[in-house]
């Protein structure tokens, strides 16, 4: 699982709001082609973009029956999960290679963003006992 973490904008929105139109278009086009290439290669299991942190809600069950739902965005987080890919690949090296590609998505001025991409392995079922 490759998790793309983006810095939070000033008002809890996406930082991309301030980008020049052309750079934004290039970025969006890059992400679409990137995901399509993974899909064409048969490596993509799932990919989702998440709604903005302003739409986030936090739920925590409480013993005293107080309202358990809090509205986002949450001040304590500087970065948030913007989206993720789940890929099915032969090696960890290939997963890192894909993550590096996503990290280098173009930003303002066409320069690579070098966003942090967190790579985590999805756990598998236990081995079959003989």
């Amino acid at each position: 699982m490759l998790m793309m973490n983006a810095p939070k904008g000033a008002s809890g929105d996406w930082g991309v709001m301030k980008w020049p139109a052309e750079d934004l278009k290039a970025h969006i086009g890059f992400m679409k082609r990137f995901t399509k290439a993974l899909s064409d290669a048969g490596e993509l299991v799932a990919a989702e973009g998440l709604a903005s942190p302003g739409q986030a809600r936090q739920v925590r069950a409480q013993p005293n029956g107080a309202p358990p739902i809090t509205d986002g965005p949450f001040a304590e987080t500087k970065e948030f999960l913007a989206g993720y890919w789940i890929v099915d690949v032969d090696s960890q090296a290939r997963a890192f290679e894909i993550a590096a590609g996503a990290s280098a998505a173009p930003g303002p001025g066409g320069k690579p963003l070098n966003m942090p991409i967190e790579v985590r392995e999805v756990m598998s079922a236990p081995p079959v006992e003989a």
Binding site: V16, M17, K18, W19, P20, A21, L24, K25, I28
Partner: peptide, 11 residues
């Protein structure tokens, strides 16, 4: 993406 692009175009 459409709405962000509109904002960026005007900016």
């Amino acid at each position: 993406e459409y709405l962000i692009s509109q904002a960026a175009r005007l900016a």
